[in-house]
């Protein structure tokens, strides 16, 4: 009777080597690849939380409205009604968290208003623009205009 696996010992040895290499590869691989990698895609799923964990510095207009009730009298219907508070008043998450110690800085309308309203040909035609020096000289804008309810 023929014996096909008569001289198979060298094959067994080679298979053993392959097995050891394979196991070694898998062990090394699981040690080197961070936890969560491949869970959601070709990346570490924990990176989503890392990106989401940053603390905001702009509180958002919803946070302002919790204490400040400007909408009914001052902002309603005005040209500035749709603008977020922090567009002019600056990032105030600290103030929203602790209103007593973090006080918003005072604003100088002379420079602040020009940030948007300085004349520039690239601005869209519908947007009100002035050359401040010709329009008001050295006067501050809020001597004539009310920033929360601007009119002419």
């Amino acid at each position: 009777m023929p014996q096909p696996l008569k001289d198979a010992r060298h094959l067994v040895r080679m298979a053993g080597l392959f097995l050891v290499a394979g196991v070694g590869f898998l062990v090394l691989r699981s040690a080197l690849i961070p936890a969560g990698f491949g869970e959601l895609g070709h990346y570490r799923s924990g990176a989503l939380d890392d990106n989401a964990r940053v603390e905001p510095r702009f509180a958002g207009r919803g946070a302002c409205a919790e204490c400040h009730d400007l909408a009914p009298e001052e902002l309603a219907g005005g040209a500035h009604a749709a603008i977020g508070c922090e567009a002019c008043h600056g990032p105030l998450a600290g103030h929203a968290a602790d209103p007593d110690t973090e006080v918003p800085p005072a604003l100088d309308t002379r420079s602040l208003c020009a940030t948007c309203h300085a004349a520039e040909p690239a601005k869209p035609g519908w947007f009100p623009q002035v050359v401040a020096a010709e329009h008001a000289g050295d006067d501050a804008c809020d001597e004539c205009h009310v920033p929360h309810q601007p009119g002419v």
Binding site: P56, R57, F58, G60, R61, G62, H80, I83, G84, E86, A87, P91, C116, F127
Partner: peptide, 11 residues
Amino acid sequence: LTTACCEVCPT
């Protein structure tokens, strides 16, 4: 919240 850029965009 919305993004910081959208939060402050005045127009």
